[in-house]
Amino acid sequence: MQVARLYAPGRLELEVDPDPEPGPGELVIRVRACALCGTDLKIFRHGHSHLVLPRVLGHEIAGEVVALGEGITNWAPGDRVQVIAAIPCGECRYCRRGFQTVCENLESIGYHYDGGFATFMRIPAKVIQQDGLHRIPDGLSYEAAALTEPLACVLNGQEQVGTGPGDTVVVLGSGPIGCMHVWLARARGVDRIFLIDVDATRLRMAAERVEPDEAICSMESDPVERVLRLTHGYGSDVIIVAAPSAQAVEQAIAMAARRGRICLFAGLPKEQPVVQCNANQIHYRELIVVGAYGSTPHQNQRALDLIVRGEVPVERLITHRLPLDRILDGLQLMAQGKALKVVITP
């Protein structure tokens, strides 16, 4: 089989490996679609502290079961499946309390286990034990199903801040994640959604697909002033920071309504993780600020259901479909801002 294996930052090699065989409690899938994530680009450029190289990357995965290991009885060759990325242990203090996204022993596909940029992929027993495989219904493309994992993370973030009817929502960042936040907020019944980005070209490309009530380029107008004007001075009920920017976090606090909820969805660069903020704004306006990281196996299933029902039309985000031997082209397209979502089809 063919694999794309990272040996060092900037060194991704296409290689031929033996086809994998499943061990006890495992199965093997033929990878039909594995989407490139912004995290994949960061790892390609800079590596990652949780990553032991060499490693096959790719964690937004959909495929077809081709081989079963000993003890697997509820899956069969030909089953179409979506695979979780984050694998909780199910046993630690946080998992027992239902907080699987902050599991003490959290492992991930494409970090601790080889991922989906390969013709075939062995699914660890731990994934199956944690209900980490989900059936893709007939009629849904593998490419759309592969985008379940990022949507599950988006769902986790919006559940943290409780988006719903009556809310005005601002999304800062118009990449694929920001687009998914817009669609999901609509599916959850919010009143109005504003999408903000510093890049006018990217914002325009996103707005054409997700149709926010307002698209605001922060290089052309002050986004805080614009949001306050659009909300008659009240500010936004929910602000989702989906851009790795300290300035965006500061803007989120400034544009929040009283009792507003702020979701810090995007992590900041490790060399600049500190944000300047007026804590009195949080205190006197009773703001709620939460972080959101990853998703649970159950949220993956619910995200897949949202895609199946057409409530979050993720396939509209796919701008490029490339074979595995063009994965470097896909990474370059992302780096140049010429793509929203690139899906590799091994």
Rank of each mutant, 00 (worst) to 15 (best):
I216R: 02
C217N: 13
E220C: 09
S221L: 12
S221R: 15
D222N: 15
D222M: 03
P223T: 03
P223Q: 08
E225N: 04
E225K: 10
R226A: 13
V227D: 02
V227P: 02
V227H: 07
V227Y: 10
L228A: 11
L228Q: 04
L228P: 01
L228D: 04
R229M: 06
R229N: 07
L230K: 02
T231F: 11
T231V: 12
G233P: 08
Y234M: 15
Y234T: 13
G235D: 03
G235V: 01
G235K: 01
S236N: 03
I239T: 14
I240A: 01
I240K: 01
V241M: 05
A242K: 04
S245E: 08
Q247R: 14
A248T: 05
A248E: 06
V249W: 00
A252H: 07
I253W: 01
I253H: 02
A254P: 05
A254M: 14
A254N: 13
M255L: 10
A256D: 02
R258I: 11
R259S: 12
R259Q: 08
R259I: 05
G260Q: 03
G260D: 06
G260P: 02
G260C: 04
R261A: 01
R261E: 00
R261L: 00
C263T: 03
L264M: 15
A266D: 04
G267R: 10
G267F: 11
L268F: 11
P269N: 09
K270A: 09
K270L: 10
E271R: 13
Q272E: 12
C277D: 06
N278A: 07
A279Y: 12
A279M: 13
N280D: 13
N280Q: 11
Q281I: 02
I282R: 00
H283M: 11
H283Y: 12
H283K: 11
Y284V: 11
Y284L: 11
R285W: 05
E286F: 06
L287K: 05
V290G: 00
G291K: 06
A292R: 02
Y293M: 10
